[in-house]
Simulated assay, not measured.
Amino acid sequence: MNYYFQDGHYAAETTNGLDIDSVLMMERMDEVENMSARENPIYDQISSFSVALYVLGCCEADDFLSMQDIDECYAAELLKINFVEINKTDITPGYKISNNREKYLMVLGDPVFPKHFAIIVNMEKERPFFSKLRYFGSGYDTLEELIHEYLDEGVTGYEDVHYFRLI
């Protein structure tokens, strides 16, 4: 195992080249997807904010079931503390969460009162975003699907899409 210093802390890289943080995030995505699969959703018990922030490791929870639900106000506060807004063009070309140390979040709506959080998983895939929809469980979506899902909450289009990098 190799260790490197990044963003003020030591991180580890596995022997197959995957960053340990990325491996943990992928394990959390699997956990969330198994617990809140679209075929068997727990949509009334947890928000997209909770799912995204849990997967990215921004909340203290031993597992998905012990995760406290996060509302839009607390989500906005955590967004200010843990993330910096970027342009979409700042995302590494060919980005994959498993191969990059940077972690990204897509936010729908005004970041001060967000409507939805989605983790950017793989920009080379047709469905690059992992999140939990309001009336469905967790899974992968296109940007167009996510915008369409939140039209009734004031999201009008691409101007309501914001990108953030985890700091």
Rank of each mutant, 00 (worst) to 15 (best):
Y3F: 12
F5V: 09
F5W: 14
Y10G: 02
A12M: 13
E13D: 01
G17W: 09
L18M: 14
S22C: 10
E33L: 14
E33T: 03
E33N: 15
N40T: 15
Q45A: 11
S48H: 02
V55T: 07
L56I: 10
D62A: 12
D63G: 07
I70K: 01
D71C: 05
E72K: 11
C73K: 12
C73V: 14
Y74F: 08
A75H: 12
L78I: 13
K80F: 02
K80G: 04
I81A: 06
E85R: 14
I86H: 04
G94E: 11
Y95A: 04
Y95F: 15
S98E: 11
E102Y: 06
K103S: 08
Y104R: 02
V107Y: 10
L108G: 11
V112H: 07
F113T: 06
A118G: 12
I120P: 08
I120L: 14
N122Q: 06
N122A: 04
K125T: 07
F129G: 00
S131N: 02
Y135I: 00
S138Q: 07
S138E: 12
D141Q: 09
L143H: 02
L146F: 05
I147R: 12
H148A: 14
E149G: 00
L151Q: 15
D152R: 06
D152Y: 06
E153S: 07
G154Y: 03
D160R: 03
V161T: 12
V161K: 04
H162M: 08
H162W: 05
Y163F: 15
R165M: 15
L166Q: 13
I167Y: 01
